[in-house]
Nucleic acid binder design. Structure first.
Length: 554
RNA sequence: UGGGGUAUAGCCAAGUUGGUAAGGCAGCGGGUUUUGAUCCCGCCAUUCGUUGGUUCGAGUCCAGCUACCCCAACCA
């Protein structure tokens, strides 16, 4: 099987290879066609990677086309956000951005052609009457009394519709197909409706707007799309797609192929629900780092490469699926593990005082930016008598499974010396606030010369130079794997999806590194949030480190 | 007997002239390690929704069942 550029093959690529080999097409052309009625999410990333990826791998091109046939739901703000997201993912569309609305004039002409062929009619039935006449899944529908209106009358009525002489809901243009078809979408579907709405692209030029099924196939044909890829719920619609193309005068026959949409555990991936989360303020906005939106993932610290890798790993099939979050997390960890410089931060600080270290002295230590990659260089970090360490890295007593600092025992301070805890100071509640210790000056960069084995290593931040910072730790947005299956999905929102910590970070982390973020050793991958200021740095935890210890418990 | 789809491990997914079940994620052992990380090594489907049939041989072909998803917006 051909695997272009390490892309695993899939049934759609196989169809394309077959078409190319058989000479059905010389070059292939795809399109990514979002409706600008919300932000893009990780499910769209799957479609984007598929469409643009195929174009790139088979020397074809891919258009970005806004499917903007319903002005009341759409907004220019969404078209801008979508363009940004596609670019951020690393893809470039062919030529200018397209809009279905670019073709309103042509679409209107094709509607007229259908009318002239006796294949479309203006129906003055109400929506209720139409539903009544449509029949059910098991019973055929009944013909509308307007179905046999003559061509001339239909032409005149459609022009009146277009001229704004009928109110919204008063009439619609329908394709004349088959009221007894087992495909519900073939039971004389509405192809134009009246809407006195301002359109973000065409302004107030139109008061009739074409429906999706009529628009999409024609837009594809106009643009010379060879393979029109969409999700499974449009499988029935393909019959209508093909019917329209066959019945109008257009010399291009795009083919539609359907793949299954992505489902991710512990989140929701439908625009309707995402919009609800934003509008009801369950989250901070479309780019809230807990959101599965591209903007949310970006702010959370996911890299474009990690999202592309995820899309590659999940594959493309027609099977319904529910992908585990661990799959996504593995992708960002793999990326950041090799690319992110290391640093140290203490999220839940207590004081560590080194009693045999001279008061007022500050030593400069050197620390590698990456333990396995010397080319990433070193940095200087301050070390003095008082440091911050994590509260959970110290215990007054513990068994030997606890490889951290214990009273009377030794531990290695990462990139520094071995220290031995001697005594503690507690607050009124009995919480340890200060640990006093002795350090072994002979242990910088080497093990104790007497052969003592010090297994544990903990991170720290120098108290004289460390900066206070806010750390935002994220967890899954929902408490159940499939919130969409819930009666009311907002009932299962995880109340602890965001935990804010006030801690200390080493100095010098002023802007995100090229990799996108840092690894704060032993605590996870972090990036500076857009709300970060010079006065108070704010870090988002992109994802934690794989934590075997947490699983074992203690 | 409405129609359209899909069934391979906990999850994703290869398998396409029938020849004896890839890979990834997760998990479990072990090694290295100044991150309980990384890295390395090993384990993880006698079986492909199910029941029959054809065949020397079936995940792949045939028939019957079963389960799940989608379709009755002037949404996309």
């Amino acid at each position: 099987m051909a695997e272009t550029d390490n892309h695993p093959t899939n049934f759609i690529r196989q169809i394309i290879e077959k078409d190319l080999a058989a000479g059905v097409h010389d070059t292939i052309k795809t399109r990514f066609p979002p409706e600008p009625n919300g932000f893009l999410h990780i499910g769209h990333a799957k479609s984007i990677c598929l469409n643009f990826g195929i174009a790139a791998d088979y020397q074809g091109t891919c258009n970005l086309r806004f499917d903007d046939t319903n002005p009341v739901k759409e907004d220019i703000a969404y078209v801008n956000a979508i363009k940004e997201d596609v670019n951020w993912l690393g893809f470039s569309w062919d030529g200018d951005v397209r809009y279905s609305s670019d073709y309103f004039e042509q679409l209107h002409g094709y509607a007229l052609e259908l009318i002239n062929k006796g294949l479309a009619y203006v129906d003055f039935s109400s929506q209720d009457e139409m539903r009544e006449m449509r029949g059910t899944l098991t019973q055929p529908g009944k013909n509308s009394p307007y179905r046999d209106t003559d061509v001339a009358t239909n032409r005149r009525e459609f022009e009146k519709m277009t001229a704004g002489e009928y109110a919204e809901g008063q009439c619609s243009l329908r394709a004349k197909i088959d009221m007894a078809s087992p495909f519900m979408c073939l039971r004389d579907p509405v192809i134009y409706r009246v809407k006195f709405a301002h359109h973000h692209q065409t302004g107030d030029k139109w008061c009739v707007y074409p429906m999706y099924d009529f628009t999409h196939c024609i837009s594809d044909a106009i643009e010379g799309i060879t393979h029109s890829l969409c999700t499974l719920e449009f499988q029935d619609n393909r019959r209508l797609y093909d019917w329209v193309i066959e019945n109008i005068s257009i010399d291009c026959t795009p083919r539609q192929y359907e793949f299954s949409r992505l489902n991710l555990e512990y989140t929701v991936l439908s625009k309707r629900r995402l919009i609800q989360l934003v509008e009801e303020h369950h989250v901070d906005g479309w780019d809230d780092p807990r959101m599965p939106t591209i903007a949310g993932l970006r702010r959370r610290g996911y890299t474009p490469a990690s999202v592309r890798e995820f899309c590659k790993r999940i594959g493309v099939t027609k099977m319904d699926n529910m992908v585990e979050m661990s799959m996504l997390e593995a992708c960002i960890r793999d990326d950041l593990n090799v690319a992110a410089p290391r640093a140290m931060a203490v999220l839940n600080p207590i004081k560590l005082v080194i009693e045999n270290f001279p008061q007022g002295q500050v030593e400069t230590l050197s620390a590698p930016n990456h333990p396995n990659d010397e080319s990433m260089g070193k940095r200087e970090i301050a070390f003095s008598r008082e440091l911050w360490i994590e509260a959970e890295d110290f215990r007054e007593a513990a068994n030997k499974k606890f490889k951290r600092l214990v009273l009377g025992k030794e531990v290695r301070l990462r990139n520094a010396y071995v220290v031995k805890a001697e005594r503690v100071e507690k607050d009124a509640d009995g919480n340890v606030t200060v640990v006093y210790c002795q350090y072994d000056p002979e242990t910088l960069g080497k093990d104790p010369s007497d052969g003592r084995k010090v297994k544990g290593v903990i991170h720290w931040v120098d108290a004289t130079s460390g900066e206070e910072a806010e750390f935002r730790l994220y967890d899954r947005l929902f408490n159940v794997p499939n919130p969409a299956a819930e009666e009311n999905f907002t009932d299962v929102i995880n109340p602890d999806s965001l935990v804010v910590k006030k801690g200390i970070v080493e100095a010098g982390l002023n802007e995100n590194p090229a990799s996108g973020g840092w690894q704060f050793e032993r605590t996870g991958y972090f990036c500076l949030d857009k709300t970060s200021t010079a006065a108070l740095k704010v870090f988002n935890r992109t994802v934690g480190l794989r934590d075997t210890w947490a699983k074992i418990g203690d």
